[in-house]
């Protein structure tokens, strides 16, 4: 069963709808117990780092996410859901989950911020979830970006005035800065890759 983490930050609906299109059923995980039962986890996110971390802590989900990732479970972080996996964010000065070494900072660009719209994913490192994604365009809405401490975590880059890390991967854990659930066919294919990777029975 795929668990979609619900911590009151943003709309889970669009991810749920996209998974439904792929004939995958997702359960909404709002407690540590829900997460413990999951076979794969999607961590979506829209909003700001500070309130999101506070909401995760209030629900006891911060430790549950860290514990789940430690088991090696297939895990996909989307947008803020990827950023929160790092140690801290310059947005709200928030301490985050510290699953991945590195920080989150404002995109140091002269171009318009927030970075809103379609942009391409490049320099994709081989990973089953990112297979076929080199050069594909995805939909981005963000101002902050992840800055991994070790380049080995970086799995893809995008350029908005300056290059930034738009995908990360470490074993079963994948994070993307863009919104696959809003990125048309390419986004659905990425989610399908994740489902296959997670070996979740797609058919109802």
């Amino acid at each position: 069963m795929i668990a979609l983490i619900d911590y009151g930050a943003g709309n889970l609906r669009s991810v749920e709808n996209a998974l439904a299109r792929l004939n995958a059923r997702a359960t909404i995980a709002a407690t540590p117990e829900d997460l413990a039962r999951a076979r794969a986890i999607i961590f979506p996110g829209v909003g700001a780092a500070g309130p999101a971390m506070a909401s995760l802590r209030d629900r006891g989900l911060d430790q549950a996410v860290i514990a789940a990732i430690r088991t090696g479970i297939p895990f996909l972080g989307i947008c803020l859901g990827m950023q929160l996996l790092f140690e801290s964010s310059a947005e709200d000065g928030a301490a985050c989950l510290a699953v991945l070494p590195g920080t989150v900072g404002r995109l140091p660009t002269r171009e318009k911020l927030p970075h809103v719209g379609w942009n391409t994913l490049e320099h994709v490192r081989p990973h089953p979830v990112l297979q076929g994604m080199e050069g594909q365009a995805f939909y981005f809405v963000h101002t902050y970006v992840v800055v991994p401490r070790h380049p080995t975590v970086t799995a893809g880059e995008t350029t908005h005035g300056v290059p930034f890390v738009s995908a990360v991967a470490r074993q079963g854990l994948v994070g993307v800065q863009f919104h696959p659930e809003r990125s048309g066919t390419a986004g659905l294919r990425l989610l399908e890759n994740f489902l296959r990777f997670a070996n979740v029975e797609a058919a109802a």
Partner: peptide
Amino acid sequence: TAHEVFIP
């Protein structure tokens, strides 16, 4: 529409 269309 949101059930069928996966763009903003």
